[in-house]
């Protein structure tokens, strides 16, 4: 089954044509990696999947994006869409409030008020993000007192707390040290069973370590999309090969 089906997607920032005729089918319950040189539109495509581009003035989108068959640019409730399609950003961005309140923010947004229920959600989300043991004794402490790697896992917990179906991650480890990166990669492999994950990465090894499929982008176009093994072992396109072997700018 596919979580996202994208057909004939074009995106413009004012006059600039940032995404060109994208056709992609992203499988659910898998990890899909987006790779490609800086500025090729990976983040832009990711943000069309939960309509974060709505916030950008002058951004125009044509084409068809479906989440489990529903057109998300039809008259969908954007807030509901973003609950179903969570996002983790490049730089960890916990809110300046306590660890507990960070994770509880999403559930509270969607109407959960009971302290008991919130406590359960916070604990299970922090456990799922493999950070519970590190923070269970200081849930009332400010989230900004955590280390960078912990902050990013907290942001993952925060995203999981609203029970999304898909997780979008935009270079979630690029600001982290190798040990924190390793922890997050392990975590993603455990999350794959329950969530569909789409991850942008600059790191080829990361793509091969964790992803099932890989899409290679260049100048706003999808050049190649296949199982990760195929893309890295026998790329069909010369440009893909150049990129993954590091012969590219």
């Amino acid at each position: 089954m596919n979580c996202f089906e994208i057909k004939g997607l074009n995106l413009y920032y004012d006059k600039f044509h940032a995404l060109k005729n994208i056709d992609l089918e992203l499988e659910s319950g898998k990890i899909t990696a987006f790779i490609g040189p800086s500025g090729c539109g990976k983040s832009t495509l990711l943000k069309t999947l939960n309509r974060m581009n709505d916030l950008v003035e002058g951004c125009r989108i044509t084409g068809d994006v479906r989440l489990f068959g529903e057109d998300i640019y039809d008259d969908t409730d954007v807030n509901l869409l973003r609950r179903r399609v969570g996002m983790v950003f490049q730089k960890p961005n916990p809110f300046p409030m306590s660890i507990f309140d960070n994770v509880a923010y999403g559930p509270r947004t969607h109407g959960i008020k009971s302290r008991f229920e919130l406590g359960e959600i916070v604990e299970s989300s922090l456990r799922a993000a493999a950070i519970w043991d590190e923070v269970k004794d200081r849930l009332k402490k400010p989230a900004l007192s955590l280390s960078g790697g912990q902050q990013q896992r907290l942001c993952i917990a925060r995203a999981l707390a609203v029970s999304p179906e898909v997780l979008l991650m935009d270079e979630p480890t690029s600001a982290l040290d190798p040990i924190s990166t390793g922890k997050i990669e392990e975590l993603l492999l455990t999350l794959r069973e329950k969530y569909s994950i789409i991850i942008v990465t600059h790191n080829m090894q990361q793509a091969t370590r964790i992803s099932d499929s890989t899409a290679f982008f260049l100048l706003g176009e999808v050049i190649e999309y296949d199982s990760t093994e195929t893309v890295f072992a026998m790329p069909r396109d010369q440009r893909t090969e150049d990129y993954i072997t590091g012969r590219f700018g």
Binding site: N79, R83, F89, K91, Y105
Partner: peptide, 27 residues
């Protein structure tokens, strides 16, 4: 107030009003 706070809030499905009152204003 950094835009990353606003993005974080919108990304969880919070609306504009909640984002402004709960995240931006306190900061």
């Amino acid at each position: 107030v950094p835009d990353t706070y606003r993005e974080g809030s919108f990304g969880l499905g919070a609306g504009k009003l909640r984002t402004v009152l709960r995240i931006v204003l306190p900061s």
